[in-house]
């Protein structure tokens, strides 16, 4: 039935915060171990967010709540569209819209630290956007569809055709997961943050919403990684886990870079993607003409 898409979207909306929170908990635990600490309980992110909701509501301007709420809603919407099997390009655009709302929230408060965070977030956006579009185009080229529903059931081992695109995507994934060395707009690490970047002025339930949005976002991004391996679900899940572990590792062995380096990395990743696609186009053209 055509209702399966609704189930996908519904499951995402309900489960993604749970899974995302758990991932965050595990992430913190592994990070702690890498740094020789015991680390917090796995459920710590939930305790944190729960506590945030109980905090007094303090704002610089009322408008900030609006933008953050819009951010959360549109992140959830783009993730839901993804798991409903929707059009990748549309999902990417909804995703961009969501981030613009977060940036606007940081601008609205008119505070020096959030302002810098907002500018940096925009630079990040500019850095990863080309690659994310190219990733969608790459998946289209081998499956002939922009729809997640079609790509997910494709029997073509996408990763074999798109290794460059995958590497490029993994690079910008570091930006998206807010991991070092590209956590320039706000960081989870206390040791490399100027105050708290883009989220400086968000507190209490507003900050909790940002956190939840981030969980949604991470689950969506891991879903995107899965698409490269979708032809074999077992390998797919392993690949997602390995990729995430690699991201945690990179996070812990690198220090934050300057924005120039972040932008350059994102755009060079896209160049890698383009080269991959060009070679792919050549091969596909060659196959189509029957090798003549």
């Amino acid at each position: 039935m055509t209702w399966t898409w609704l189930i996908g979207a519904g499951l995402f909306l309900v489960l993604a915060p749970v899974i995302g929170g758990l991932i965050a908990g595990i992430d913190r635990r592994i990070t702690a171990r890498m740094q020789g600490r015991v680390g917090p309980p796995i459920l710590q992110p939930f305790y944190d967010v729960g506590k945030l909701f109980e905090k007094e509501s303090v704002v610089v301007t009322t408008a900030q709540n609006f933008y953050v709420l819009a951010y959360l809603i549109f992140i959830a919407l783009s993730g839901a569209l993804f798991f409903a099997g929707g059009d990748l390009l549309l999902i990417i655009f909804a995703f961009t819209l969501a981030h613009v709302f977060l940036v606007l929230g940081a601008y609205a408060v008119h505070s020096p630290y959030s302002h810098i965070g907002a500018e940096r977030e925009l630079i990040q956006l500019m850095a990863y956007e080309p690659m994310i579009i190219l990733a969608a185009v790459g998946l289209y080229m081998i499956t002939n569809s922009f729809y997640v529903a079609d790509i997910a059931v494709s029997t073509v081992p996408a990763i074999l055709y798109l290794p460059g695109v995958f590497l490029g995507f993994a690079t910008i994934l570091t930006i998206k997961l807010r991991k070092s060395p590209f956590d320039i707009s706000t960081s989870h690490h206390a040791h490399q943050e100027i105050v708290k970047g883009i989220t400086t002025e968000f507190s209490g339930s507003t900050l909790a919403q940002v956190e939840i949005a981030h969980w949604y976002e991470n689950v969506f991004l891991l879903g995107f990684i899965y698409l490269f391996f979708a032809w074999n679900p077992v390998i797919g899940i392993i690949a997602v886990v390995v990729t995430y572990l690699a991201e945690i590792f990179i996070d812990n062995v690198t220090a934050r870079v300057r924005w120039q380096a972040a932008l350059k990395s994102g755009w060079l990743a896209a160049v890698l993607g383009i080269v991959n696609l060009a070679i792919l186009a050549y091969i596909l053209g060659y196959m189509m003409t029957g090798g003549a």
Binding site: V60, A63, L104, Y107, A108, V109, H110, L122
Partner: peptide, 15 residues
Amino acid sequence: VFFWAKWMGKIIAVT
């Protein structure tokens, strides 16, 4: 996205 969003941000900054 970059140049439009930063303009937008300027406009909606609540001074």
